[in-house]
Design a protein around this nucleic acid. Structure first.
Lengths: 113, 113
DNA sequence: CGTATATGCAACCAGGAGGTTGCATATGTC
DNA sequence: GACATATGCAACCTCCTGGTTGCATATACG
């Protein structure tokens, strides 16, 4: 596995990180975690912003593949996509692995030189 | 562990995710991973932006605790803080755990009801 | 049908993010 | 000291983000 290949894969994670990088959105994710699938109105209760703002954040999370929704009667119910979370975790594992490998190479350089 | 407590901890991760949520910054992180500590000029080579822009991104990563720097002669050398990466990974573990717990609760509700 | 609820959509607005350029400062080298 | 290199700092600009409000639409319910 070349560094450039794994780097290209890592860069794909940027939109996901960006989606998680907002306190309001992280709060929504957390609530969907602890309370399960919820409608927009339910998610707006307790969130200190308008329903429309909540919808915007949910769409941002959806674009990143972190949540998905389904219309149910006159409600739209949102829930998490845990798979995507696991993918992000694997991205971070990749960073750690690359870092460990870099440390090894540096050590070898010192020893060889 | 109450949900509100773990949620509060999760929200603290937002700035770290935001720092990783930019392709340019993820590229810098990746390069520091694969090439080890680098000066600003070295990091600017290959990055398609000015040295000052690179510095801004490095400062953003630094604010999030993901990198740190040290002056060495007339250079400033930047390197990763792998500990912070591990912390973020633990945040994601927390999301997954909460999600699994939520699924269990939902299943119990169905069975009990 | 009429009414209340839940959502969708669009216009609008302030502030910050990400980029640039220009210039000042610090360090290495001769 | 003179010169080249590496960085720091500030002003400036553009665009996107995150928020709002207002109104339209869809569904439940009597």
């Amino acid at each position: 596995m070349r560094a450039s290949a794994s780097q290209a894969r890592l860069i794909e994670a940027a939109p996901v990180f960006a989606a998680l990088g907002d306190p309001a959105r992280l709060t929504l994710v957390s609530r969907l975690c602890s309370e399960g699938p919820l409608s927009i109105v339910r998610l707006t209760e307790g969130a200190q912003m308008s329903r429309q703002a909540v919808t915007k954040h949910l769409n941002a999370l959806s674009d990143a593949g972190l949540v998905h929704s389904e219309r149910s009667g006159r409600e739209r119910v949102w829930q998490l996509r845990p798979r995507r979370i696991d993918e992000v975790r694997r991205y971070l594992d990749q960073i750690s692995l690359q870092w460990d490998a870099a440390l090894d190479r540096l050590r070898d350089l010192v020893e060889d030189g």
